[in-house]
Nucleic acid binder design. Structure first.
Lengths: 226, 226, 226, 226
DNA sequence: TATGAATGAGCATTCATTCAT
DNA sequence: CATGAATGAATGCTCATTCAT
């Protein structure tokens, strides 16, 4: 189906290699610190090829950021009918694993570090990443509110509370200290506590939901991919 | 009182001018992108003067980071007996104003962006900033727990919940989008909502405390300095 | 035969131009005084090309020294059966011409001037130049001793006497005074006198040999290449 | 007698300190490699003082070279009536010790290394050093010739033979290899051999003189100061 | 199409030199 | 008189970018 002429396939493969190399170099050295030489060498292509494919350092950077942003933040996944608490539990771990993945953190550091020089990139990142997740979460929370399981006035604030309660602390720490990825146990603490506070504040049946949460938490950290 | 010889005063003034210029240039261009020429020009001194004062680009950067961090993060201020809710309210606005100040955000972006190349600076930032505030907050919360006003198991988690509920959303947005400082009204929303959730989860007398919060919130945003 | 691709030929030509320019600039300004800008300008290439070819100033210098030393000091040439005196005469003129050549003197001044900072270069120069000649001379003298034409205990000392008698004075003068190359007539004086002393001290048949020397000397200075 | 006003004495002391420091720095780093900062620091004075005393780097260098040249090469000392061979023996050791002294070698390397950029300095060095010694030696040799002890046509050549036979080899080696000072035993070899060849060539009574030389040589190396 | 080779402009840093005190 | 502080002009070296092949 999607079979391409060998020419085009070759071109795409090279493009991929360049983008991958560029990500590594940019993430490690920052925009200004990265050199086209380093990227070309890591990709195993010559520098003119780089320029033929991407025009300039700035364009390469922009292309890369767009591409990464789209590929790393998968769509918000509709949870699968396990009930409120189990669904929130799954959601929390899924986003923790995504957002605290070293590659994702490197990208976030890059975006933040260059936000002043490349404002559009930062803004686009926000729009495509966090805000999309937020909207997905809002829809989900609104559905649960309609089912009578949650109670709140402002779905956006509720969604942001959820993120802030669970991910703010470990993410901030990891952003500033690249060597300090939260351990699985710490994460378990943050997830459990964050959900507990969330349910206390928003559940219409906190007794039941907190009990369920405790049960889930007792099974220990969910094993993830990071 | 502490009158200085004109020599020393002149030197200090020049030092200040250099550091201020350096902050601007580093914040705009990142560490690698910043040029000593640009800093010298903005400070109105010659390049050798820069080197006489600070030794090297790296030392200038480190000095700047330390100095900015220390000057911007005032000590954690013991609240002054207005009662739990008013105290939390004051605290929230104080830290919102500090943490969301444009200069502080620039500094944070810089620290984050260079975290991979200057790990000590990122770590020192954590230790001097967030962690100090966190410890202050924990002490405060523990005192309130002793007074029977709050209930929680883990003071650290509670303190981090407070920060995450109030500041995570606007700070993340501002970090990624330098042009998007939260408006006063938005901040009011975040502060009010964050404290509401916190009190629902931790207050031993939520009815009373939430009523007080609502009263405070109705007076509108606290006017700050930024 | 060894025809090269135009690429390679071009490269080698440029390399030559750079090395020639470097010799001139280094010889005139010393290692520290020489600037890569000056070398590049004289060679008619851009500075980055210099670095692509030779990596660094130090490497360029080292390469240059090795190359010059090897190209200037031809192998010790076995004399060709003209008899003792004529052979010594030819040898003396050959080495006088080599050692007192302006380029060779520049190189020697450079090596000496930088001996403290580049000890290996000075040592390598000794090993490849004087010591090789010395060994060649020792072999020759030993052969003549075996033929009964010369008498001495220590071939090394004899060889060094020969060099010192003939070349020490003009070389020392030329080393210190770049503008003062010995005139052909002066050289004739040194060569004739040096060989006379040498033969008086070492010949087993001084009467005959000195007569031959006088005959050679009367034909005037040997015309050389410098 | 030579008591000076304290002012002037202080000035001269400082001048001395500067010149001594300059010698060290120039000798170690060459003219271009030496920095006025380094000289000032080593002398313990401020840079403007350097310029007040000596005007410029070039003038400081010139002054230094003149001063050193005059102070290091003492006058040719008239030998003291020990007889031809003992006098030559003493002379040889005296000049070996002078010329092979590490400080003197450093100075010579400097002069040679900078001969192209400072031609007058090299020429002046020749005139004040070697040539003065040479003239003294010529006078001495002529006197011995008048006494009937030596026989030669050209006193200048004879004097240069003496120098070349004794000092050429060790000095050349030491010039090129700063770390390789000739050992006392080597020097003994060179002195003994050089004088032997000289006497064979020029003595009117070689049998007697060579015997005396052998006797002197058997007492081992003359102990010197280096 | 892909590349080895080239370069102008800029980098952090240091220099010899000179004020202002 | 001596100096702390300042600087214009290099220095060695690297960068993003572009020919010529």
């Amino acid at each position: 189906m999607t079979s391409l002429a060998p020419r085009a396939r070759n071109r795409m493969a090279k493009e991929r290699r360049i983008l991958d190399s560029a990500l590594k170099v940019f993430a490690n050295q920052g925009y200004s610190g990265a050199s086209m030489d380093a990227i070309a060498a890591l990709a195993g292509v010559s520098k003119p090829t780089l320029y033929q494919y991407f025009g300039s350092k700035e364009q390469l950077f922009a292309t890369l950021m767009v591409e990464q942003r789209d590929s790393m933040l998968g769509a918000f996944e509709e949870p699968d009918g396990l009930g409120l608490v189990a669904e929130l539990w799954a959601f929390a771990w899924h986003y923790a694993d995504t957002v605290l993945h070293p590659d994702f953190l490197s990208l976030a550091r890059l975006t933040i570090g260059e936000a002043q020089r490349f404002p559009e990139i930062g803004r686009a990142y926000q729009a495509a990443g966090p805000e999309r997740v937020l909207r997905g979460m809002m829809d989900y929370l609104n559905a649960k509110k309609a089912e009578g399981l949650l109670a709140f006035d402002d779905a956006e604030l509720a969604a942001e509370d959820l993120w802030g309660l669970i991910l703010s602390a470990p993410r901030n720490r990891a952003l500033h200290d690249a060597a300090c990825l939260p351990k699985r146990d710490d994460l378990h603490r943050f997830v459990t506590n964050g959900l507990r506070v969330f349910l206390k504040a928003y559940s219409t049946n906190p007794g039941h939901d907190l009990a369920q949460l405790t049960a889930l938490a007792e099974q220990g950290p969910t094993t993830g991919t990071p």
